[in-house]
Simulated scan of single mutants.
Amino acid sequence: METLRHIVLFVHLIGFAVLFGAWAVQAFGGKREFTRLMSIGMSIAAVAGLVLAAPWGLPDGAEMNYAKIGTKLVILLVIGALLGIGTARQKRGEKIAPAVFWLVGILTATNAGIAAIW
Rank of each mutant, 00 (worst) to 15 (best):
L77A: 12
V47H: 09
I114H: 03
I40V: 15
R89G: 09
E33V: 13
E94K: 15
I7C: 05
V51D: 11
T71L: 13
V104Q: 06
E94S: 09
G41D: 04
V51L: 15
I40N: 09
E94I: 01
M38E: 05
I7L: 14
I106F: 14
N65G: 03
H6P: 07
L73Q: 02
V8I: 15
P59I: 06
S43L: 15
G93W: 00
V104K: 06
I114L: 13
V11R: 11
G93D: 01
I14F: 01
G70N: 10
A53V: 08
K95L: 08
L4S: 11
A22R: 07
I69Y: 02
N65D: 13
A27H: 02
G49A: 04
A22K: 06
L58E: 06
A67K: 09
R5I: 00
R92A: 12
S43F: 07
G80W: 05
G105A: 06
A115C: 06
A116R: 08
K31N: 15
Y66W: 08
G29C: 05
T110E: 02
T108W: 02
L13K: 08
E33G: 09
A81S: 11
G86Y: 03
V100N: 10
R92S: 12
A97W: 13
Q90P: 03
A53I: 09
A62P: 06
R92W: 02
L103P: 06
L107G: 04
L13E: 03
I75M: 08
H6I: 10
A48V: 09
Q90V: 00
A99F: 12
A24C: 13
T71E: 07
T71P: 02
T108S: 14
G113Y: 07
T108G: 14
R36H: 10
I69C: 08
L82T: 08
K68A: 13
K31T: 13
L83V: 05
G80E: 05
A22F: 01
F20E: 03
G57N: 11
R89T: 05
A24Q: 07
I40H: 07
K31S: 14
A97E: 14
R32V: 00
A17T: 08
T108K: 01
L77Y: 02
M1A: 12
G105F: 09
V11S: 11
A46Q: 02
L9H: 15
I14Q: 00
L82F: 11
I7Q: 06
A115H: 00
V74A: 13
R5K: 15
I40Q: 12
W118C: 04
V51S: 13
I96P: 00
L73P: 08
V78E: 11
I69R: 05
I75Q: 07
G30F: 02
W56L: 14
V100I: 14
T3E: 12
L83R: 03
